[in-house]
Structure formats: C-alpha cells, structure tokens
C-alpha cells in the first residue's frame, strides 16, 4: 500500500521536514490573526472592544472590594444626595445608597446572568438546531414538535410563575430558569441553515470518507455556519442583558436586596425620579445602551472575519 505511493512519486520521508517548512511559509494566517487584523481596520469596533472588555473586567474586579450588604443598608442622611456630595460620585437613591457602587455590583450581576444565559441557551439551541437539521426525517419531526410546544408556552408568564414558586432563588437559578425558554429562536435559525448546508457536496464527500455523523455535524457543518452562530450569539447576548433587566424592572427578577441594572432602571417608575433625581436611573440606562451597541459592533467584526469575502483588514 505505502510502497504503491512511494513508487509513483519522488517525495520521500527525507523531504518531509523541508516541504513542511515550505508549506508553513505559505500558510494562510490563523483565524485569531485574521480577527485581530479586522479589529485594527475598524476603529469604532476597536473602541467598542476596549469599552466592553475594560468595563466587564472593571465591574468584575471592583465589585470584589464592595461589601454589598453594607452598601444596601438604608442611610437616611444621604437621601437623594446629588452627584458629588458626601463622597458619592453619582449621588444616592431614595434610601441613601450610593448609585455608583450599586451600578458596579448591579452590572456584575446583570452581565453575569447575561453571559451565563447566552452560553447555556445558545449552546443548547445550536446543538438542537444542528442535530435536527442534519438528521432530518423522523428525528427532525420529533425535535421540531418539542420546539413547537416550547414556543407555544407564554414565556414571560411562565418565568414569573416559576420565580414566584421557587422559594429561595438567586442569580444561578434565575439563569437556569431563563435558559429553559431562550434557546428556541437560535435553534430554528441554525436548523434552517443546517438543512441547506447538509445538502452540499462536501458533506457527501465526508460521508464517503468514512467520517461519523457527529463529527460531520460539529467539525464540518458547524464551522461553515459559524458566521451565523456568531452574529446570533452576540445579538442574543445584547438581548439577554435586556431580559434580566426587564424582569427585574417588573419586580420579578433578582431579589430586592441584590442590585442589578433592572432594579436601578426601575427607579424611573417614579415621575419624581424622572424629573428631579435623574442620577438614580440615567447611568444604568446609558450603560445598557453603550454596552449593547458596543457588543453588536464587535459581533459585526467577528462576522466579517469569519467570511473571507467581507474582510476589510490586511491579510491575504
């Protein structure tokens, strides 16, 4: 067998090192390199990347130095302090609690939930969509009926009911409850692309090369729909910050003693706060807008990097 190949070519084991080196020199740049070039070519996205990474690192680290129970204590003397007075940079709310500190701890909670929710629900949704789309037939039929059933449940109401039933819930259980409902959109989107992708010849070629179905799904098809996955994941991350925030705003999110972006925006429920005490809700609102915008900028860059024909950065 090997002799058969040796007989018909001049390439032998002695050339291996030299030829691999030649190939190395001509190699296409790695994907990390391509993404980085793409960021360098797009200044707003670079700024967005710095903002998002810097901000997430800042709130994660800074919140370690804040004693949350102490911070959440009512301090009547600081009632609606204006920003800058009593050493409070962003003022205080109706209970005299520092808005700046609440913002840091609240951001950590909200972003943590959003990251957890995105990771769990996207992973599950992507797997569900890929498997359903690839196998087709009865498997697809069964999985899509489960999807339809989940889709039919009124999501917000179910979450509110679950949150009310469960006696002691915290950020982790809340994330899990959200995850039950947020994989559906992703799964349908991924399924539709997988259906188209699994008809292509390279999948047939992999089958005739003896590759197993699961390897074809996750090593062949998934990389080819990665641009869709990235766009969907970044968009759903931006959206998931809103999910927790929205529910906390309604009063069904995190417990009241746990600050979050949602509970801070809920300050805007009071007309007095909107007109006179703007510092209680405006910083949190601005933060969400800036974060979500930045994330979608970053998502666009990664999508461009994943699609050779859209690249703007240097490279091949």
């Amino acid at each position: 067998m090997a002799e058969n190949f040796n007989r018909n070519t001049n390439v032998s084991a002695n050339d291996l090192a030299r030829l691999s080196q030649e190939a190395e020199a001509e190699a296409t740049p790695s994907s990390a390199r391509i993404v980085w070039d793409e960021f360098k070519a797009d200044k707003p996205a670079m700024v967005a990347l710095v903002i998002v990474v810097g901000f997430i690192l800042f709130v994660m680290i800074a919140s370690l130095f804040i004693n949350t129970p102490k911070m959440m204590q009512t301090n009547i003397m600081a009632y609606f302090d204006r920003p800058g007075t009593d050493g409070m940079w962003l003022g205080a709310d109706s209970a005299g609690r520092s808005v700046a500190k609440q913002l840091i701890v609240g951001s950590r909670n909200s972003i943590g939930i959003a990251i957890g929710l995105t990771v769990i629900s996207s992973t599950f949704g992507i797997c569900w969509g890929l498997i359903s789309g690839y196998f087709n037939g009865y498997i697809d039929w069964g999985m899509q009926r489960v999807y339809d059933f989940m889709m039919m449940l009124p999501m917000t109401m179910m979450i509110i009911v679950l949150v009310t039933i469960i006696p002691h819930y915290n950020a982790i259980t809340l994330t899990l409850i959200f995850s039950i409902f947020y994989w559906e959109g992703t799964s349908r989107l991924i399924r539709s692309r997988t259906l188209a992708e699994s008809e292509k010849d390279y999948v047939a070629a992999s089958k005739t090369s003896g590759t197993s179905n699961f390897k074809i799904i996750f090593r062949e098809i998934m990389p080819n729909i990665s641009s869709l996955i990235i766009v969907d994941t970044t968009l759903s991350f931006a959206e998931n910050i809103g999910v927790e925030t929205g529910l906390s705003y309604l009063g069904f999110g995190l417990p009241t003693q746990t600050p979050s972006l949602g509970t801070m925006i809920a300050n805007a429920n009071d007309p007095n706060n909107i007109t006179q005490y703007w510092w209680t809700w405006l910083p949190a609102a601005l933060e969400i807008i800036i974060l979500c915008l930045s994330i979608s900028y970053i998502g666009q860059v990664i999508r461009r990097a994943a699609d050779a024909s859209q690249r703007q950065g240097a490279g091949d």
Partner: peptide
C-alpha cells in the same frame, strides 16, 4: 505530500 505531488501540486498548498 506524496498525493499532492502525484496530482501535480506543490507542497505549499498544504496549509491553504
């Protein structure tokens, strides 16, 4: 590399 040689392609195709 042998296969690439048999079909008349250079070794630098390897990582493209």
């Amino acid at each position: 590399l042998q296969l690439l040689d048999i079909v008349g392609l250079d070794a630098d195709a390897l990582y493209k």
